[in-house]
């Protein structure tokens, strides 16, 4: 019984985590575009790497979400 009560809350938490990660992704994409427009090369690789890690993390959260 305890498990069945916890499951919806757990899936809600996972969804919120994913929303937060997507928010970070939007921020990173904005930073990357601004850096590109300004010709700043130092930020491009860092934002790309962090963005890929966040996307992978979001995919992992999705995998653990109950169908």
């Amino acid at each position: 019984m305890r498990t069945s009560q916890r499951a919806p809350r757990a899936s809600s938490a996972l969804l919120i985590y994913v929303i937060i990660l997507v928010g970070f992704q939007v921020f990173l994409f904005t930073v990357a575009v601004e850096a590109f427009a300004a010709g700043d090369e130092s930020l491009a690789a860092a934002t790309a790497a962090v963005s890929v890690v966040l996307a992978a993390l979001a995919a992992v959260f999705y995998r653990y979400l109950r169908p």
Partner: peptide, 19 residues
């Protein structure tokens, strides 16, 4: 959540493309 993850993947691809 699947839509969100797809959006995250698209933005990650965009960031890699920009890099």
């Amino acid at each position: 959540t699947r839509y969100l993850v797809a959006g995250a993947a698209v933005m990650a691809a965009g960031n890699v493309g920009i890099a």
